[in-house]
């Protein structure tokens, strides 16, 4: 175990050393690429690109492939400061969700998660016996009164000016108090060292990558992507455009294809927040499943057996099975 840790340290140091090259600042514009992200996300390059001369900290001149110029992921300290003048909000349109699970998969890919770990979960909810069941994607709500942040004994989880609640996995002691304090079951714990944690990339709370064994992690609203003007993984992955994301102070949300005024959307579609009575003041809103685009049982089609069986104990699926048996 000790050896592995050492290796981790070394690779980090290597990266940082290289990273310091940019301190010289000879390159300030152009296409900036994260090499780590290149590997992580599986971008390809057609051939070796144009070389750029940079000054190292020791004063030597080095040639670097332009494709590997990078924006450093925001470090632990900087990640406490939110994107200036922003306040993020998410709107989830329950009328469109058919449990395609693309949001879950892309999020897992983007955050380098193991299959067991889901930052985005899709529930099959039914408020009461006679009411209609519906699919319910659930990210972190990034509450304005976050219980998880209040109870953290070491300040490893914090809320920023842009409303995002992040976790610093290098400070978290893994007491799991935040997990029990969150009424929305949002947080997950890294129960064991995953292979995915060994990715060669400097740690950034904004990316939640690489994961750290024995600590807590959760949906982070992808602030690293927002800095590049990109939508979170779940938003751009959804084939139905279920999830809208935006800056509530701009009063605009978008799912990548359509852009609406947030206030219009909430007013016209009677948007609400889940379990609002708990006083956590979430920043995720839901549009009720009215005039649905898909019947609810479509969401059960084409799922892995493992995923499908998750819903076996819901009243809706039980009913469905009973009906089939009745025939």
């Amino acid at each position: 175990m000790g050896d592995k840790k050492n290796d981790d340290c070394n690779s980090r140091r290597k990266f940082l050393k290289l990273g310091l090259l940019a301190g010289a600042g000879t390159v300030a514009s152009g296409a900036l690429v994260t090499a780590g992200a290149l590997i992580a996300k599986g971008h390809g390059t057609a051939d070796a690109g144009e070389k750029i001369k940079v000054l190292t900290t020791t004063g030597e001149v080095m040639e670097v492939d332009r494709n590997f110029l990078t924006l450093a992921p925001v470090g632990r300290k900087e990640s406490h400061i939110g994107l200036p003048g922003r306040k993020f909000v998410m709107v989830i349109d329950l009328a469109r969700c058919k449990n395609a699970r693309k949001c879950v998969e892309e999020c897992q890919k983007g955050h380098n998660l193991s299959k067991d770990q889901e930052f985005m979960k899709v529930y099959l909810l039914q408020d009461s016996e006679k009411t209609a069941p519906y699919w319910f994607p659930k990210p972190c709500y990034h509450c304005d009164n976050p219980q998880c942040v209040s109870v953290c004994p070491v300040g490893a989880t914090y809320k920023r000016s842009d409303g995002i609640v992040l976790i610093d996995n290098e400070r978290c002691i893994g007491c799991k108090f935040c997990i029990t304090a969150c009424p929305y079951s949002t947080r997950t714990f890294s129960w064991k060292a995953e292979e995915a944690f060994e990715i060669d990339q400097p740690y950034s709370p904004e990316k939640s990558v690489p994961g750290v064994e024995g600590t807590v992690s959760k949906c982070d609203f992808c602030p690293d992507l927002a800095r590049e003007g990109k939508l979170p993984y779940c938003v751009s992955a959804c084939p139905m455009g279920v999830i809208y994301f935006g800056d509530i102070d701009e009063d605009v949300v978008t799912n990548g294809l359509e852009t609406y005024k947030f206030s219009d959307l909430i007013r016209d579609r009677s948007g609400y927040r889940h379990l609002d009575n708990l006083g956590t003041r979430p920043n995720v809103y839901y549009l009720p499943p009215v005039d649905r685009q898909f019947p609810v049982d479509r969401g059960l089609d084409g799922l892995d057996e493992e995923v499908r069986s998750r819903y076996d104990n819901t009243p809706y699926v039980k009913n469905l099975k009973n009906k089939e048996a009745g025939k």
Partner: peptide
């Protein structure tokens, strides 16, 4: 019950 005993001093 704590995931990262090595970080207890953080408390």
């Amino acid at each position: 019950c704590i995931g990262r005993l090595d970080r207890l001093p953080n408390l």
